[in-house]
Structures are given as C-alpha cells and as structure tokens.
Design a protein around this nucleic acid. Structure first.
Length: 270
DNA sequence: AAATTCTCCTGAAGGC
DNA sequence: TGCCTTCAGGAGAATT
C-alpha cells in the first residue's frame, strides 16, 4: 500500500527514464478509477514533453509544457517502466507511452486516479487544501501544534488528516506515535508543544527511514546507519497486535480509531 | 464548522 | 474443496 515513501520511491525510480521525454501515446483500458479518467486525457497528454516529475503528498505530478498530469496510486496502485512491448496483464489499466519507454499503471482495487489539470497543480481542487509536506521546513513543531490545538479527535486521526499533514497513512502514523512514545488515543488538542516537537521529529524519521529503504512497508526494514535509538529496525507496532513490544516486551494492544486498526504499546506510549 | 461515517474495489483470510 | 463473510485501506463525499 503506497504511502508517501512508496510514492517518493516511485517518483525517483521513474524520473530518470521519463523526464525530457515526449508522450507519444496514452492507452486507457479502464476509465473507472477512484475518479473517472478524463475522456480527453490522451488528447491533453500526447505530444507533450514531461518537464519534471514532482510529488505533493501522495500525488505524483507530471509537469508538462502545458498543464500537469496527476497520478494517485490509491492503496493498491503501482507504476512500472517497460522497456519493450509487453501485453497488458490483469489490472493494467493504463499505459503512458514515451517512445520506447512505457509507464504502466496496475491497480487491482482501482482506488487510484489519473487526472489532468491545465492550471498550476497547487490550485487543483484535490491539492488546494492539503496541509504541510512532512519532510519540508514548513512542517515544524509550532505548525503541528497550531493545527491541532483545537482538534478534539485522537492524535492519530489528526495525523492522518491530509489537511494537517500529507502522506502519513495508517502505518506511519502508528510507527511515528510509537517512536514519539505518545498514546494514539490522546486528544490532539491536549498535546504540548514539546510533544508536538517529538512527534514532528518522529514522523520525519520514520518517513525518511522508509524512503532510504526504498519504500518498504509491510516488510521489515533493516537498520541503516543513523541516530542511535531513532532508526527503527523494522515496523515496531503496525500489524503486530498481541505480539511483544520490541522495547519492553509487553504485548501490544490494538483499538479502532476512525475505523482503522491502531496498534500501540500501552506501557511505552503515554 | 468539526467530527464521524460512508463509499469506491479486489484479494486475502477466516469460518463452517 | 468451496462458498460465504469480513476486512483492509486513501481520502473525498455525505451525513450528523
């Protein structure tokens, strides 16, 4: 399931091959994704050179000479570069052909999206109200504190609200809260500035670590070099309900927050 | 206005 | 073995 690290890894992986290339064909096999694929997508894209590929939250932004092609991978989407012709398989919903190279979207659950905007992407209705990029300078303790100080929801729910901070899904919200030793059910507005500082740092650490690992999610990620005690050796809590906490040994517990499974250590997280 | 629930979809897992 | 049910999840839309 692509979260921000997976999307960033994808971006890095495809940029080299695609930036500067001209889109020569667009094949859409399934128009019914999260949002209907624009009928005129092909017409908008073909003939245009990909100037650069950026990311905003979990959106991939293909900046063209005119307008921007937007891809969201939903939760089961993936992009693959094909160097030669290959017959489409199941769930291969679209191809973006750039001469010899083809970018192919596979998305079994079809929660992804293919969009085009003629305007600046930051003005697009889906991007306009997004909160801070977690790895940016803008995302600092004061920002987080100000944005949640009136929130009555659980801190984990607030973290997953893209109007506050983008790219933090269920996995990394749980991991960051564990690293910051903050209980996921704490009321967001009750966090102190100091706790926001810890949480902000923890979010950056878990996301950066995952990007370094190439965006692995479910698999363990082995520790690269890093600040001692900060780099997680593997996912500490996500999907580990009823297993022992790696830090203290107590069995991890889980609850539902906004219908999402939330695993945490009742001893380590207060 | 903010908080909560619903919704899209398929595949995996569990129950019998 | 096989069928049925449940669940997972990103995030906008709908509802409370």
């Amino acid at each position: 399931m692509p979260e921000l690290p997976e999307v960033e890894t994808t971006r890095l992986g495809i940029s080299q091959a695609l930036v500067g290339k001209k889109i020569t064909n667009v094949i859409v096999r399934h128009y019914q994704l999260r949002f209907p694929v624009p009928k005129h997508l092909k017409k908008r894209l073909v003939g245009q050179v990909i100037t650069t590929i950026k990311r905003r939250g979990k959106y991939l932004l293909f900046v063209l000479e005119k307008g921007t092609f937007i891809i969201h991978l939903g939760m089961s989407g993936s992009l693959r570069l094909l160097e030669s012709k290959l017959p489409p398989g199941k769930h291969d919903h679209a191809d973006i052909v750039c001469g010899e190279v083809t970018l192919r979207l596979n998305d079994p659950r079809r929660f992804g999206a293919l969009l085009y905007t003629p305007d600046a992407p930051e003005n697009h209705v889906l991007l306009k109200h997004l909160g801070a990029e977690p790895l940016s300078q803008q995302f600092r303790a004061k920002y987080l504190y100000e944005r949640i100080r009136h929130k009555k929801t659980a801190i984990k729910v607030a973290l997953m609200d893209s109007k506050i901070v983008v790219g933090v899904g269920n996995i990394y919200a749980a991991e960051a809260l564990f690293l910051a030793r903050i209980h996921p059910q704490r009321i967001a507005s009750h966090l102190t500035l100091k706790e926001c500082e810890k949480l902000m740092r923890a979010i950056k650490v878990v996301l950066k670590a995952a990007i370094l690992r190439g965006g692995t999610t479910i698999q363990n990620f082995s520790a690269p070099s890093g600040k001692p005690g900060y780099f997680t050796q593997r996912l500490q809590v996500y999907d580990r309900a009823h297993q022992p906490c790696y830090q203290c040994g107590k069995l991890l517990v889980d609850c539902r927050l906004a219908k999402r499974q939330t695993v945490f250590c009742a001893r380590c997280q207060q």
